[in-house]
């Protein structure tokens, strides 16, 4: 099963988003799914969180030095008249168990309807299970993916982009280790075959923004998972 040993969380994060992606996050350019991956990474990575804070401060400077555009004469009065309106109630958050609250970063918890163990996991082949997440964006697929211990995702490359954020356990890919908090982005120039840790498997947030291009005949067996 997924390892939730807190000691694993103290391993420093090795793989961070490119500064260009942090800029796109701060400016509000990213689609909801990739913004979610970045928000989750920055919720557990102090360095990237600080980088985003600095970029937000650039955005703040752009607003405070923006050329003002006159607002209507009644603009202030219209807002003053609304100050006492009741605030729309926040949606009721579902109860999440301790494992889920430990493993799933806050920004992602808000997209879960139930705890990890009771999500509608769909088995894909013998190595994978996935639970799709309700995010906006046509042509973008967002899912939690579990890779079973020691198993691999078939070798593949991408017609579009693939983003992964490790939430628990870890995997190896092209000789590199990816564990909790590690963020990876693959484009069509990469061909890779992640292999989950033998002892705990791996839980990832995975985003695909175009159909994957399969390299091996085995890939066809798990095609339903890979199809966006």
């Amino acid at each position: 099963m997924i390892t939730t040993d807190p000691s694993l969380q103290s391993v420093p994060i090795a793989h961070h988003p490119d500064p260009a992606v942090l800029l796109a996050y701060s400016a509000g350019t990213l689609c909801e799914s990739v913004a979610l991956a970045i928000a989750c990474h920055a919720s557990i990575c102090r360095g990237c969180r600080d980088e985003i804070e600095r970029l937000n401060a650039v955005g703040g400077a752009m607003i405070s030095e923006a050329s003002p555009a006159a607002v209507g004469d009644d603009a202030l009065d219209r807002v003053l008249a609304r100050l006492d309106e009741p605030v729309p109630p926040a949606p009721v958050a579902p109860h999440l168990d301790a494992e889920t609250r430990t493993v799933v970063p806050g920004p992602l918890q808000r997209y879960l309807s139930c705890s990890l163990s009771t999500l509608p996991w769909r088995r894909i082949g013998r190595s994978l299970e996935e639970a799709r997440l309700p995010l906006s964006g046509s042509g973008v697929k967002t899912a939690l993916v579990r890779i079973k211990p020691g198993r691999s995702v078939p070798r593949h490359s991408h017609a579009g982009l693939e983003y992964t954020l490790v939430l628990a356990g870890g995997y190896q890919d092209n000789g590199e280790d990816f564990r909790r908090g590690d963020y990876a982005e693959f484009d069509s120039s990469h061909e890779h075959q992640p292999v989950a840790d033998a002892d705990g498997g791996c839980l990832c947030l995975v985003i695909l923004d175009a159909p994957l291009r399969l390299s091996g005949w085995l890939g066809r067996l798990i095609n339903p998972f890979l199809r966006v």
């Binding site: 509000g28 909801e32 920055a42 401060a57 955005g59 703040g60 607003i63 920004p107």
Partner: peptide, 25 residues
């Protein structure tokens, strides 16, 4: 100004893309 910027950015996204913008926790 930084705090207001994030609110404004999220309002832009809410108005034009109709979704919430995931924020760092």
């Amino acid at each position: 100004a930084t705090w207001v910027f994030t609110i404004v950015r999220n309002k832009h996204i809410d108005l034009f893309r109709r979704h919430a913008y995931p924020e760092v926790d």
